[in-house]
Amino acid sequence: YRGKNITSMKANEIARLGLVRSFQISAVFGHMSVLENVRVALQQKMGNSFHFWKSERSLRELDDQVMQLLAEVDLQSFAQTLAVELPYGRKRALELATTLALDPFVLLLDEPTQGMGSEDVDMVVELVRKAAANRTVLMVEHNLSVVSRLCDRITVLARGSVLAEGDYDSVSANPQVREAYLGSEAATLEEAHA
């Protein structure tokens, strides 16, 4: 990664290099407010995440940055809401804000729209699009609508091997991809109707 072998590095060390990941299951501090969740992430970047004994007042210097990040993910009106009270889609947005607080060069997302209703999917797609404006985003996603709307380059894996790579149109038309994901009978039926 950026000329450095990171294979044996710990996740927090890799994150400090600008390679930040977000998992499929939302990971926020439910007992903390939305603002506090993002503030903790900013503290990590500043190197004082373990200064939990500092007064609340001394941490308020981060609040302008927090509110900017919350505005990026359309959560500024939820700043004082406990994270546990957020609907699932908003929790994903909060997790994206905490990830962006680390100012990554590369953002790894694992199925960011998994388990969401269509209204939340649309919101998260737009948030990921914004996040990708100034950085590389590598995403695992099985929702083909999301893939078609977000991805410039797609790699399809089957049984641990690369099956196809390219843009959405070429990959979705690939007969090997169709057979692997639709089955040989479905792929043959689709070809007959084309």
Score class of each variant (00 low, 15 high):
67 M>G: 10
68 Q>E: 15
72 E>S: 09
72 E>P: 00
73 V>H: 00
77 S>R: 11
78 F>L: 03
79 A>L: 05
81 T>V: 03
82 L>I: 01
85 E>W: 07
85 E>G: 03
86 L>E: 06
88 Y>H: 01
90 R>W: 05
91 K>E: 04
92 R>W: 02
93 A>N: 00
96 L>Y: 04
96 L>E: 01
97 A>I: 00
98 T>K: 11
98 T>E: 08
99 T>A: 15
100 L>W: 03
101 A>R: 01
102 L>V: 04
103 D>G: 05
103 D>N: 14
104 P>L: 12
104 P>V: 07
106 V>M: 12
106 V>K: 09
108 L>V: 00
108 L>D: 04
110 D>P: 09
110 D>S: 04
110 D>N: 07
112 P>R: 00
113 T>R: 02
115 G>M: 09
115 G>T: 11
119 E>D: 14
120 D>M: 08
121 V>P: 01
124 V>P: 10
125 V>R: 13
125 V>Y: 04
126 E>K: 14
129 R>N: 08
129 R>Q: 10
130 K>N: 07
131 A>W: 06
131 A>K: 12
132 A>E: 06
132 A>G: 13
133 A>H: 02
134 N>A: 10
134 N>P: 00
135 R>C: 01
137 V>H: 14
137 V>L: 13
137 V>Q: 14
138 L>D: 12
138 L>Q: 11
139 M>A: 13
139 M>F: 13
140 V>A: 15
141 E>G: 14
142 H>R: 09
144 L>K: 11
145 S>N: 14
146 V>K: 06
146 V>G: 09
148 S>R: 12
149 R>S: 12
149 R>W: 05
151 C>W: 10
151 C>V: 15
152 D>T: 14
152 D>C: 10
153 R>I: 07
153 R>F: 12
154 I>D: 10
155 T>S: 09
155 T>L: 11
158 A>F: 10
159 R>W: 04
159 R>P: 00
159 R>D: 13
160 G>Q: 08
162 V>C: 13
163 L>Y: 02
